[in-house]
Every structure is written in structure tokens, then in C-alpha cells.
Design a protein around this nucleic acid. Structure first.
Lengths: 228, 228
DNA sequence: GTATGCTTCAAACGCTTGTTTGAATCGGGC
DNA sequence: GCCCGATTCAAACAAGCGTTTGAAGCATAC
């Protein structure tokens, strides 16, 4: 009861709040959610430790705010992209590649756009599927329920030979491929991979990455059913 | 200098050490590496807190031991499986599906075998690709360098139309799909997915899971090159 | 029995964590 | 000028962390 996050009307300072969000996003992405003390965040942001509890209530509140700030517009963009390809297809089903592009491109572009989430968001996004905890579960529910419902339906219509659960699993695999690449984008090439891939091929521009992911996922989704 | 892990020759008690390893593996898998206090581990194992530092030197030593115990035989089994399919193919390249089976089946079977790592290992395995930190990097280097080298070469030979880095990325995507499924195996179906998939289809037997993964990955790997 | 070396234990250590406190500071409205 | 709510700050708080300690247990060898 000591503080409310919406205490200042609309054009609040927002400087401190945003500085904290930026610093937290960066550190969470680099070191995971649970390896970042609040004192590191406030030091990176150049503010006092108590500012987090004042503006966000708790560290949990900050974590939620960090994810909300990115996931809400991101998944809105993905569904808007799906709207467009579905409208363009009229009453037919859109191309599978177009559906996958709507699913994948906004993520990769956000992840690689230094103006927006910057490269720091990649780790965050990947982490929200790998870190445990009830808090992240609620965040995921809020942001992903509608999204997976819509894309599952679209993919089911695009590949009518597959069953519901087969489409689900292949969408799940696609998501795994996507977020595994995001997790590695932020990091330098590990030495133990240098025999297999050159450094110049390890960090791609976003459009190449989208092309690779869409081609891989589309082929995987179109594979013959394994439950005949 | 107060303790050495190899202090007892060969047929040591091993009871305490193994109880700690089992408890740690279970808790690490459920809650991540950094959310598990040593006191929870020792309580689950029914031993004293100091036993961890006595037998493993530190919590870091315990983490390393937990991963080593599973990853060494696992990746040995994957390479042995690759040996078999390569020997069977003679001087030809093996089927891509057989290569992928050697890559995937031992993981899924270990993950789902309650006699071995039990279901608890799934989370661990997935987590070692998602949690940050230099320690896990070294563990990965030790256990995965040879493995990815061999499988990359085998896949490259099986799909000679693809470039080295294209094979690398598609192997990376495959790995993401595999470990994303592992991460979700341990957990119950989240409520926000219940509109998309039935609970009975969310937890499969290991052979069905392997079939799905191999079919998806093989099709994805055989997709036409995106860098012509 | 006694001595020896490995193992276990309860207790405490020093440190870091998230959070709270109460005073200081700021900025506009009268 | 003065006041008032919002914001910032240094300092302290209690709880939890990984680790260390020194004594107690417990086999085996003599």
C-alpha cells in the first residue's frame, strides 16, 4: 500500500521507470531472471535500490512489467500479420509459408532491432519458455493463449491432412527451433562450435534467419503424418 | 583442501553421494539450477548440509557432477547408435532418418525411462541449453564438442546439396525442437493450452515422440536450400 | 581395547538477497 | 513565499544463501 505504479497520471517522469525497465531487460536477458540482484539493476540504471519497490511494488512486479512491455506489442504484431495474410487469401487458406512468416518474422525482427528491444530481448524471449515458476506461467497465459489458438487454427486449415494434435506438436517443435535460435543469437560463438560453423555464419541478418526458419518449419509441418 | 571427492577408493559407500545426486537432479530439473538452495537438496536426500561440500567441494561441483553423470553415457549412446547406422550403410551415407534417430532416440528414452534419469532429467537437459553461466558452457563443451562434430558431418553427407552452415542451422533448429519438447514433458499441460491440445495427446510414449521428432526434423533438413 | 582415517552432524559464520524506513529533495499551484 | 504530494535517497532490516568448523560417529587394522 506504500506505492502504486499508476500514481502519476499520464505524462509522468517515466524516466526512472523506463531506465529501470531497460536495465532489467538487459540484465535478465544476459544472466537469467534469478541471477540478477536488484542492486545490479538499479546500479545499471543509475537509480536507487528502493526505486524498484516504489515503482513496481516488488521484484516480481518488475519482472512482469519487463515481459509485458515487449510481449503485448509483439504478439499483437504477429496476429496483425496473420490478419493480413488471411485477408489476402480471401476464403482460401493462406500459404503455410505466409502463416509461418507471420509467426516468426516479428519475433526475429524485434530480437534483432537495436532500436527496439535491442539484442537484449532475444535472451528474455527464449528464457520465458525455459525458466520455471508460477509467475512466468501467468505471464505466458496472458500473452500466448490467443496467439497459439489463432495460429494453431490457421495451420490446421493449411495442412488439412494432419490431425489437431499433430499440428500442435509440430507447432511446438517450430517454437522450439525459433526460441533456441533466439537464445544463441545474443551470445558469441562458443569455442566448441568453431569446428562446425564459421563465426560469420553464426550471426545472420534477420531476414536470412527468417528465411531459414520458415523453410525448415514449413517442410517439417508438411511431412507425412506419423499416425496413420 | 578439507575434502577430496575421490577420497574413497572404488566401492565407497556411495550411498550419500548418490542420494545427493538424485535429489539434486530432481530439484534442478523442477526448479532450475539457481532456485534450489543446498538445504533443500540435502533435506530431500535425507543428509546433512555439509555433505555437499564434503563430497563435491561446492555447489558448483555438485552441478557439474549432476550433468556429468547423465551426459557422458547419454552422448556415448548417441555416438554408438551413429556408429551402428554408419556401419550398416557401408560406404554409402546412412538414411537421414536413421541419423536423426541416433541423435534423438537416446535422449527421449533416457528422459522417459523411470528406471534411469526418470522424468526428472528432461528438465535438466533442456535447461543446460537455456541457463546462462560459464560453468554450464564448460560442461557443454566437454560433452557436446565431439557429438555435434560427428552428427554434423553425417548430416552433411546425407544431404550433399546443402552447405555446411545450412546443415549447422538446421541441426540447431532440430536441437531446439528436441529440447523444447523435453522441457515441457516434465510439466503438466498448462491451462492456457487446453483449448488446443488434449491432455492425453500432451504426454506421449517415447517411441511416438521420437517418430514425430524424426519426421519433422528430416523433412525440415531436406527442405530446399534458401541460399542458392 | 586402542588408534586411525573416512564420514556425518549441529551449529555458526559471513555475505547477499529483497524489502522497508524516514528523512531529504523536487516541482507546481495558490 | 509557502505548502503538498510525488519522488529519490542512504541506511538499516530480517531472511536466506553457500560455506566452514570442530566435535561425534563408525568402521577397519593392529
Amino acid at each position: 500500500m506504500t506505492s502504486q505504479s499508476e500514481s502519476c497520471g499520464e505524462r509522468c517522469h517515466a524516466a526512472t521507470k523506463e531506465k529501470i525497465l531497460d536495465a532489467a531487460e538487459k540484465l535478465f536477458a544476459m544472466r537469467g531472471l534469478n541471477n540478477v540482484p536488484m542492486r545490479d539493476i538499479t546500479q545499471e540504471a543509475g537509480v536507487n535500490v528502493a526505486a524498484i519497490n516504489y515503482h513496481f511494488g516488488s521484484k516480481d512486479g518488475l519482472i512482469t512489467a519487463v515481459f509485458d512491455r515487449r510481449l503485448a506489442p509483439l504478439n499483437q504484431a504477429r496476429m496483425a500479420a496473420l490478419d493480413i495474410v488471411e485477408a489476402a487469401a480471401g476464403k482460401n487458406s493462406p500459404n503455410l509459408e505466409d502463416i509461418l512468416g507471420a509467426f516468426i518474422r516479428p519475433v526475429v525482427e524485434l530480437a534483432m532491432n537495436p532500436k527496439l528491444g535491442a539484442i537484449t530481448f532475444t535472451g528474455l524471449m527464449g528464457r520465458c519458455f525455459s525458466e520455471p515458476g508460477e509467475r512466468l506461467n501467468q505471464i505466458m497465459q496472458k500473452h500466448f493463449e490467443k496467439l497459439v489458438g489463432r495460429f494453431h487454427a490457421a495451420m490446421l486449415r493449411a495442412i488439412p491432412t494432419l490431425s489437431r494434435e499433430e499440428v500442435f506438436w509440430r507447432m511446438h517443435f517450430t517454437n522450439g527451433a525459433l526460441h533456441n535460435s533466439l537464445l544463441t543469437m545474443e551470445k558469441p560463438l562458443p569455442e566448441w562450435l568453431s569446428n562446425v560453423v564459421d563465426a560469420k555464419d553464426y550471426h545472420l541478418d534477420s531476414e536470412s534467419q527468417v528465411r531459414r526458419l520458415v523453410a525448415f518449419a514449413a517442410a517439417g509441418l508438411r511431412a507425412p503424418s506419423t499416425t496413420p
